[in-house]
Design a protein around this nucleic acid. Structure first.
Length: 268
DNA sequence: ATGGTCGATTGTCGA
């Protein structure tokens, strides 16, 4: 018996303003024709979403935007359905979550694009908001997993899960993006049965997805790995590769984040 | 040395 496998590429990229980064997004898609791209930090309202340019690039899109801050989208080769915006039941004016369902070989896949709160500083109000938001996110993902066994949650988690995800763990110890309560929140998602796709494979040491614009962060590789692809067990079993594409971080006028790409080998 | 750079906005905040 022959077993056919169809590759499906899923990606996530915090673009830090889709207005500024649109040409880089379409150029990246041309060079990396992924099946699905989750975007974060659009920083534009829904009526300003560049739908025509995205369609011209060959992608459908669903988005949950707002002026100035936050905003998420999912670009896809095939249209999404059953779109969910925000975390149901969690009152929040900040547009941080969008989810949709996609047809794929072997059955439908549920995809979440998330821009998790930054938290600003440990002990701040924004930090407390971050931890509360993560509790709501956790509960909702538990429910999503019951409805959708094939679940992929991609985005900017604003958490570096382990010290090997930090360029200078001593310097960062205990600070926001790295603190133990945040890492505990991240591990809580893994304990739902989600796998960090990047860590399913051997990876180059000092692999990061975000570098501060200041202090020549990228040139010094002074970064953090805070952008993640989490996969439910049925998808994790099919995951054959997960990589960070540092190329666009070297562009002129880059986003401070790099895209993360996961490849699934789906049964035809 | 407590800054530094971006983006959205036009003061200053958020990251």
């Amino acid at each position: 018996m022959l077993n056919f496998s169809v590759p499906m590429h899923l990606a996530t990229w915090n673009v830090n303003s889709l207005n500024i980064r649109l040409p880089q997004v379409t150029a990246w898609l041309q060079a990396n024709p992924v099946d699905l791209l989750c975007l974060q930090e659009l920083k534009l309202a829904d009526d300003k979403f560049p739908a025509a340019a995205i369609e011209a690039a060959g992608y459908h899109a669903v988005c949950a935007g707002q002026k100035t801050y936050n905003g998420v989208a999912i670009l896809s080769r095939t249209p999404g359905r059953d779109v969910t915006r925000n975390i149901p039941g969690y009152e929040d004016l900040q547009q941080r979550v969008i989810a949709a369902t996609y047809d794929a070989p072997g059955g439908e896949i549920r995809v979440v694009s998330a821009y998790c709160p930054n938290g600003q500083a440990v002990g701040s109000q924004k930090y407390e908001y971050k931890l509360a938001w993560y509790r709501a996110f956790h509960a909702w993902l538990a429910d999503q997993l019951l409805q959708y066994p094939r679940l992929a949650v991609l985005g900017d988690y604003n958490i570096a899960p382990e010290d090997r995800d930090v360029h200078d763990p001593a310097k960062w110890e205990g600070s926001v993006l790295v603190s133990e309560p945040e890492r505990e929140a991240f591990r809580g998602l893994l304990n739902l049965g989600l796998a960090d796709a990047f860590r399913l494979f051997e990876q180059p040491p000092r692999s990061f997805s975000w570098w501060d614009y200041r202090q020549l962060g990228f040139r010094r590789n002074a970064g953090l790995r805070i952008d993640h692809v989490l996969l439910s067990a049925p998808l994790a079993r099919l995951c054959a590769e997960c990589t960070i594409d540092k190329t666009p971080r070297g562009n002129e006028q880059p986003s401070d984040h790099a895209p993360v790409v996961a490849m699934l080998g789906l049964a035809a």
